[in-house]
Design a protein around this nucleic acid. Structure first.
Length: 720
DNA sequence: AGGCCACCTG
DNA sequence: CAGGTGGCCT
């Protein structure tokens, strides 16, 4: 079952698989009785924990009695120890295994002691019965005394816990208010009132009476189990933004956790995000307090744990909010005055920045969503995907359902009709819709997100936007082995949460290392561009000290390429025919890049291009020969148009989108048409006799890479 | 020299 | 889709 340590992947069983006596029930119990009990002396009793078995070494054995509660407390203490170990990151696995073994071993030890006493009493004859009874009476009396002392101690503990609870409540309240304040939201009281469907008194928070009653009644094992059962809500790992409800549900099933709250968080208004965050944090805290895990907020471990819990929940929620806001922003946000539309075309023209755009705005945008592409001459140029929202690949090319796009904007009309007459070397650039991500503070983003969050939409055939909604993770991303990490974009924007984070410097270092490698230009010369045009591919990904990199789960980037990555690469080909190695690194965040992997990915795209060009040439020749009956419906489609009902379209879709789970972007259709016409013209004019006749076409295609949707930054497979 | 490319081949 | 090769570029 989940426990607070789950959150950090430290749910390592308290019973070590290497423990020679993994299951206490395997050992003779007092009630089970019977002969043939294992002789403690014949099996060296728990050498690993021998020192713990020394007198006074095991606090839970009170007066030789078994105290389940004490065991529980011991267990909790050990959990705390584990978490402290995690926090410090200094204690290895052995330490945890040791504590788990100690627990079992002590129990076994007590069992054996009782068993031995019973055996002794059985072996002794009737003559000794009187003495035995005397001893037994004395022992019982002592046990009664011990029990009473135990009760007394427990009562004191409960009182202490109660005090700690009160203190914890106060601190939680303070924290909550700080959180609300930080996000400019309504006060906590209002929040609690709204949440208080089950709370009649409007007192908010957890039901105090109920909770206190629980605390006062003492903590039985059953109640402990109940508390633990409540935990999962608190320990749902950070879900990736755009994680579809269906996938979330499946994921949640894997976690054996209820999903209602998460669904609500996804579908509901933004306020519910924080609601869920604080609620779960409160649940966490409540559990921790009731279970006596905390030594008070000032006790170090407790406050740290709560801070981490709160941070995690906030991080998860904020990541979703940010991504949703960004998506909404690309749909609805008018052009801010600080960003001039011209930067779009300049960026797209490959002007390498230049002096045109307002430097700060330009840089910030390019930091957010630059796109590095490459020319056939092996040079790179940095484009500005965020400015290319005219062809916003985040948006479906067809009209959205009303709920998804309540305020249609002319800029989002299908781009085909707009650009078909433009020069093939000048990518369409009308009606730019920049994305001034970093002009908005966290608070602004959050506030905006709270105002209008449309419900999710999921269709059978996913367009790019739907992809963003429902980016699942490949089957191999099992909950135990991998938790989704946040997309870098969110990571960059989530730095505001760092204040809640203490350290995790080693993770940050790893993140910085990754970032440095990418920003350093990868292996092939890096990016060009003057002015403030390019801040590097991942400038927006830089993570400050103690940053959100905390949310990257260990091992996330320790993988090579999988069939899912191939699939993703194919889908990515719709946007980028010539992705740079930096681009690949950006959009395959769960892949550990080395020279081999990079080459592999580049080879894939090389193969994709090869197939693409072969088909283009083939159909162009066919069109030149037969008058293009293979393209478009005769008499209705203009010549050399790649209708979605054409054979070429079918072939391309079959190759790059075999499972048909992705709608081919209009942009790709445009580019295919363009390539088709170029091949066609070259063939008709006889240029194809030139051995280098294809190069110009390649060069053209190379310039037409589109921004890859941000959703591709998510790790794993794009479509389930 | 190393990276990336198109091209060829299996 | 992978392996190999040669060309081009930095």
């Amino acid at each position: 079952m989940d426990s607070p340590s789950d959150l950090f992947g430290h749910q390592s069983s308290l019973i070590s698989p290497f423990d020679p006596y993994p299951n206490p029930s395997d050992h003779p119990t007092p009630s089970g009785g019977g002969h043939g009990a294992p002789n403690p002396s014949s099996r060296p009793p728990y050498p690993l924990i021998h020192h713990l078995l020394q007198p006074g070494g095991v606090p839970m054995r009170v007066g030789g009695q078994l105290h389940p509660q004490r065991y529980n407390r011991q267990e909790e203490e050990e959990e705390e120890e584990e978490e402290e170990e995690m926090g410090g990151g200094l204690v290895g696995v052995e330490g945890k295994r040791l504590s788990g073994s100690a627990l079992v071993a002590d129990w076994s030890y007590d069992m054996l002691r009782v068993k031995r006493l019973r055996l002794e009493s059985l072996v002794k004859g009737d003559g000794e019965i009187g003495l035995e009874e005397e001893e037994e009476r004395g022992r019982r009396s002592a046990e009664r005394g011990n029990r009473e002392r135990g009760r007394e101690e427990r009562r004191k503990e409960r009182e202490e816990l109660k005090e700690q609870l009160e203190e914890a409540r106060g601190r939680l309240k303070t924290l909550q208010e700080k959180v609300w304040k930080a996000f400019g939201e309504r006060p906590a009281q209002e929040e609690r009132r709204k949440r208080g469907g089950r709370e009649d008194d409007g007192d908010g928070g957890m039901d105090e009476e109920e909770e206190e009653a629980e605390t006062a009644e003492g903590i039985t094992e059953e109640e402990e189990g109940g508390e633990i059962d409540d935990l999962p809500l608190s320990f749902i790992p950070p879900s990736p933004p755009f994680y579809s409800v269906a996938k979330r549900d499946r994921k949640a099933r894997d976690h054996e956790k209820p999903t209602g709250e998460d669904k609500r968080n996804v579908n509901g208004g933004g306020g519910v995000f924080l609601e869920g965050v604080l609620e779960r944090a409160a649940v966490w805290m409540g559990c921790g307090v009731v279970r006596g895990e905390w030594e008070g907020f000032g006790g170090g471990g407790g406050s740290q744990k709560f801070a981490q819990a709160l941070k995690q929940e906030l991080g998860s929620a904020v990541a979703r909010v940010i991504d949703r806001v960004l998506r909404l922003y690309t749909q609805n946000q008018p052009l801010p005055p600080s960003v001039h539309p011209s930067i779009l075309s300049s960026g797209e023209r490959g002007d390498e920045g230049g002096d045109n755009p307002p430097p700060h705005a330009f840089r910030e945008q390019s930091e957010a969503l630059p796109l590095v592409t490459r020319r056939p001459d092996n040079r790179r140029t940095t484009l500005l995907p965020s400015n290319n929202r005219t062809h916003n690949p985040l948006l479906p090319s067809h009209p959205l359902p009303p709920l998804r796009q309540p305020h249609p904007h002319p800029a989002f009309l299908p781009p085909v009709s707009r650009h078909k007459d433009s020069s093939p070397f000048l990518p369409p650039s009308s009606c730019p819709l920049p994305l001034p991500l970093l002009h908005y503070t966290m608070q602004q983003l959050f506030t905006r997100s709270l105002s209008h969050l449309p419900p999710l939409h999921k269709g059978n055939v996913m367009n790019s936007d739907a992809y963003m909604e429902g980016n699942p993770f490949p089957p191999q991303h099992t909950p135990s082995s991998s938790h989704p990490s946040f997309p870098p974009l969110s990571l960059a924007l989530m730095g505001g949460l760092d204040r809640l984070d203490g350290g995790m410097q080693h993770l940050h270092d790893r993140e910085r290392e990754r970032d440095g490698g990418m920003r350093g230009g990868g292996g092939d010369g890096g990016m060009r561009g003057g002015g403030g045009g390019d801040g590097g591919m991942d400038s927006g990904m830089y993570l400050g000290p103690g940053s959100i990199s905390f949310f990257l789960w260990k091992g996330e980037r320790e993988r090579g390429l999988s069939p899912c990555h191939l699939k993703k690469a194919k889908l990515m080909f719709f946007y980028a025919r010539y992705p740079s190695s930096n681009t690949l690194k950006t959009y395959f965040p769960d892949v550990k890049f080395n020279r081999c992997v990079t080459s592999q990915l580049i080879k894939w795209f090389s193969n994709f291009r090869e197939f693409f060009y072969i088909q283009m040439e083939r159909f162009a020749r066919q069109a030149a020969r037969d008058g293009a009956p293979c393209l478009g419906r005769e008499g209705r489609e203009p010549p050399l148009r790649l209708g979605r009902d054409t054979e070429l379209y079918r072939i391309l879709n079959m190759h790059y989108n075999k499972s048909n789970d992705y709608q081919v972007p209009d942009r790709f259709v445009e580019i295919a048409e363009l390539a088709l016409r170029e091949f066609f013209t070259a063939i008709q004019t006889g240029r194809d006799s030139d051995p280098c006749w294809k190069k110009s076409i390649y060069k053209m295609i190379c310039k037409l890479d589109s921004p890859v949707p941000d959703s591709f930054r998510l790790p794993g497979c794009p479509i389930g």
